[in-house]
Nucleic acid binder design. Structure first.
Lengths: 212, 212
DNA sequence: GTCTATAGAAGGATAGAC
DNA sequence: GTCTATCCTTCTATAGAC
């Protein structure tokens, strides 16, 4: 369940998969330091020796899991809608899907653990950044360039505009959720954040805006 | 040094202060799990027994430090400038000070450790949220309301607008820095982020904007 | 309050049988 | 590859002398 890599069972030995699943669950839920190799072995129904037969160390197991989670989880989503005609509708759908994705327990957990361990595992911070924020910035920035060329928007710095849009989405309820502050964001709150970000973005980057 | 509480030495025993300083340094640099009570005692030049004479447990020591750091560090700053006349200048100064504060090693370290341990110590996530994002949102939102009443801006939802402004500041180089991705943000990059956020904010919330 | 010394538990990692 | 059993280190926390 959860973050398992969907490989055919011939290629991925079942025990190894069980280890990955159990470790993913535990690491994302409790962080690196709070999870012992004993606990992982217990949760995966294998012995510790089997665990060490597949992964040389706790560090390697952790890095493997987080790296895979970054790639498979973030890259697989399609965040760019096709409705090129209606910019507002396109932005709203994009923002709604993205904020709801970011607020999923799994996304929050990965974000937390990567932030926490980015000092000890710098390559994980980089992997997360490239497969997450950077990939979004590039893809959404390219879309903004297209819209600008088509005369539907007026964006001079697409990468910055993309970052700003993402930032406005993550500002309110996401920050609260990332810090574990209750209550969890309601659907109404999410929609409010989305529409607010879209309206602000459109006012600032509308093609029909008055030229200064 | 660093986050020491500036109390008179009569009230705060010197050994206790040494413990707090050493523990603050270590916890913020390496996180909760990676720091042992031995290491803290060594760094503070006290024995472990002395350490436990002042703090009942590692949890209590950690919680005390992070709680104090949130309050003293964030609340002490004045983020609202006085130049009410020139909104652009006021926003630029506010944004510059805030982003540079967030990018300080100390701020990043506290943010990291609070995010990481907010699951195990929910009260710390709340303390950080209230003394950081929430306090900013309230203070800056109030200022936006004043500016709107004075006819210099047109902000219908001050809390949301404040969050959006903060979000646009944290979008680009801050996200990278929080994940430990090199290179560290340059001054030019910071200024670019600041001016971009200010311009986008002003276009969206200018009092002279065309009414829809 | 402060120290030295240590108890008692849990952690990461491995040896050797199968 | 997989298991049981174990080694050695490190950890939190405390006992007892001063």
């Amino acid at each position: 369940m959860s973050l398992s890599l969907q490989r055919p069972s011939e290629v991925e030995p079942p025990k190894r998969q069980a280890i990955l699943d159990a470790a993913t669950e535990l690491f994302t839920a409790h962080g690196y330091g709070a999870v012992s190799m004993d606990a992982i072995a217990r949760a995966a129904n294998v012995s510790k020796a089997t665990l060490y037969a597949h992964f040389r160390s706790k560090d390697e197991l952790f890095a493997t899991i987080i790296r895979e989670a970054c790639q498979s989880n973030l890259a697989a989503r399609e965040f760019l809608p096709q409705e090129d005609g209606d910019v507002r509708a396109a932005l709203t759908r994009l923002a709604g899907r993205m904020l709801r994705f970011l607020l999923e327990d799994r996304s929050l957990a990965i974000h937390r653990v990567v932030i926490a361990e980015s000092v000890r595992f710098p390559e994980l911070g980089r992997a997360f950044f490239e497969s997450g924020p950077l990939m979004f910035s590039a893809a959404f920035g390219a879309w903004l360039t297209e819209q600008t060329e088509a005369g539907r928007l007026s964006v001079a710095d697409p990468a910055q505009a993309a970052d700003q849009f993402a930032g406005m989405l993550k500002c309110g309820c996401y920050t609260r959720a990332a810090l574990g502050v209750s209550p969890a964001p309601s659907e109404a709150e999410i929609d409010h954040t989305v529409s607010g970000a879209v309206e602000t973005f459109l006012k600032a980057y509308a093609a029909t805006a008055s030229q200064d």
